[in-house]
């Protein structure tokens, strides 16, 4: 029975695997070495090349966004300014880092793709319905840099999915995957001792933060 898969042509096997969502497909690399090599070599990995996106204050309270196209050793180091949608560059909008360079998180939870002008509304991460005044104050908190630093926007190259990671000062770490309708709790060790002022960084699909090592303190 096991030799069934050996008889199936590689193209067909690939066709079957391509019908699975990227995340479970990655996990199927655990089945056996043959499957791993087919999944690694033959199924689509993301083609997106990460570019660096930099936000700068323009000195008049607004924001500007620049994309650094080519940071290779022999690159020209050229940067071009992204045309931000109306209102996005105005004061009060906080930006969370985007790792493929083209999307960002606005203060009021709208993800905008400046290249295409597409917008995607994202529900807030808290579960219980709050009063509108509470909600308003939560939103306004988002405008502060310290609050914005609780959020990280990332592109996970293993799955081709975009995710927003929310690491609050208190409460659970939550992840929102673009395309989903709700946030998901993620059990993470060490979040309680995170140092909020040091912010978040997302590198190659993993989000990092700095925490106080409580064992050393004891």
């Amino acid at each position: 029975m096991g030799d069934r898969w050996d008889r199936i042509a590689a193209d067909i096997f690939m066709d079957i695997l391509r019908r699975l969502p990227p995340t479970p497909r990655r996990r199927l690399r655990l089945v056996c070495p043959h499957w791993r090599s087919v999944i690694d070599d033959r199924t689509p990995a993301t083609q997106a090349r990460a570019m660096v996106l930099a936000f700068v204050n323009d000195g008049r309270g607004g924001r500007r966004a620049h994309v650094l196209d080519d940071l290779t050793k022999h690159g020209t180091g050229r940067a071009r300014e992204l045309k931000l949608p109306r209102g996005a560059g105005e004061q009060g909008v906080s930006m969370a880092g985007a790792s493929n360079g083209l999307r960002r998180l606005r203060g009021d939870f709208v993800v905008v793709n400046p290249a295409t002008g597409e917008r995607l509304a994202v529900p807030p991460p808290w579960e219980s319905p709050r009063s509108s005044t509470q909600l308003e104050s939560e939103y306004s908190f988002m405008y502060h840099a310290t609050q914005a630093s609780e959020y990280s926007f990332m592109y996970h190259s293993g799955t081709g999915l975009y995710k927003i990671v929310h690491v609050p000062c208190d409460g659970a770490v939550k992840v929102f995957t673009l395309g989903d309708t709700s946030w998901r709790d993620v059990p993470v060790p060490g979040w309680a001792s995170r140092v909020p002022s040091l912010g978040l960084a997302s590198v190659a699909g993993a989000t990092y933060w700095i925490a106080v090592d409580s064992f050393e303190l004891d």
């Binding site: 995340t23 990655r26 996990r27 690399r29 996970h156 293993g158 799955t159 998901r184 993620v186």
Partner: peptide, 12 residues
Amino acid sequence: EIRQELAWAFYD
């Protein structure tokens, strides 16, 4: 080794 690889990212 593969489990470790997978563990470093958020998975649904």
